[in-house]
């Protein structure tokens, strides 16, 4: 399978990438690791006329302690996350989940920024960053702005990024973690989750994100509200499908997905230490 023809430009800096986005507008797509975009292009579900390759912006590949948060460059690869001691210390849920994206070959190429910006409800990392309450940093012609992860997902494969903006950094608050869990239910080892759950319990509060339970990555607000009122794992998990719009596909019916969401949320809360 060969993608439709396109023009290829390699950006040597973030500023150059933004200038190229400004010049080409909606016709252009950013290429990072390519492990979400290229499969879509091979199936001709996406046919951008210009690809702007940001994959070599090494200055956007970092994991740094920034005081009250961990700063992660958008071009940081899943393998970098998976093997980061700093992340293991400060955000073990993200470190662990990054090691369950795709397979080793995918994790050598795929990036956290690409995964978040692609806005696929079936991706693992958006739900994790939702659970952790992360903040995304976007750069455009008018400078830099912060977008709370809760405001980032606007529709199926759509985000709050403007066509001329580049996601540059992900900020993960440093929590005093009491427990965490990542539950990924799939049929084959490397598959997308049929349903997934990312949960964290911290002194600052709890967060729960859902994979593949609607047209966007979702925050399980009902579950978190129940936890904040002192509910146990089973009764909090009963609220797992509030606000979801699970889809029917080859892998699962809506009812089955909803069942999985309740079971996986309960398991996640139990694994993160809640009775």
């Amino acid at each position: 399978m060969i993608p439709a023809a396109f023009d290829y430009v390699r950006a040597e800096s973030a500023d150059e990438a933004i200038a190229l986005l400004t010049e080409h507008g909606d016709e252009a797509k950013l290429l990072a690791g390519g492990h979400s975009l290229l499969p879509l292009m091979k199936l001709r579900l996406a046919s951008p006329t210009v690809l702007i390759d940001v994959g070599r912006l090494e200055d956007l590949r970092f994991i740094r302690d920034a005081g009250d948060h961990i700063a992660i460059g958008a071009l940081t690869r899943h393998r970098d996350l998976e093997t980061s001691d700093l992340l293991g210390e400060a955000a073990p849920l993200l470190q662990h989940a990054a090691g369950h994206v795709g397979d080793p070959q995918v994790r050598h190429r795929g990036t956290i920024g690409g995964s978040l910006a692609h806005a696929d409800p079936a991706s693992d990392l958006p739900a994790v960053v939702l659970a952790l309450g992360g903040t995304l940093v976007a750069n455009g012609p008018n400078g830099e702005r912060e977008i709370a992860i809760g405001d980032f997902y606007t529709g199926f494969l759509e985000s709050a990024l403007e066509p001329d903006e580049l996601l540059t950094e992900i900020r993960i608050p440093k929590l005093t973690t009491l427990g965490w869990s990542f539950q990924k239910f799939n049929r084959r080892a490397q598959d997308w989750a049929i349903v997934g759950v990312a949960a964290v319990r911290a002194e600052e509060g709890s967060g729960v994100g859902l994979v593949n339970m609607g047209s966007t990555p979702l925050y399980a607000a009902g579950v978190v509200e129940a936890l904040n009122s002192g509910a146990d794992a089973a009764s909090a998990a009963d609220r797992a499908v509030e606000g979801t719009e699970a889809q029917h596909d080859n892998n699962a019916t809506v009812e089955y997905r909803e069942h999985l969401a309740r079971v996986l949320v309960r398991r996640a809360l139990e694994e993160s230490g809640l009775a």
Partner: peptide
């Protein structure tokens, strides 16, 4: 990018060469 038959090493790391452009 499922089966891995096309796995090669690029700069020492395994990648699936069906999911990477030659220009990359």
């Amino acid at each position: 990018s499922s089966c891995g038959a096309c796995t090669i090493h690029v700069d020492g790391e395994s990648v699936k060469s069906c999911t990477m452009l030659a220009v990359q």
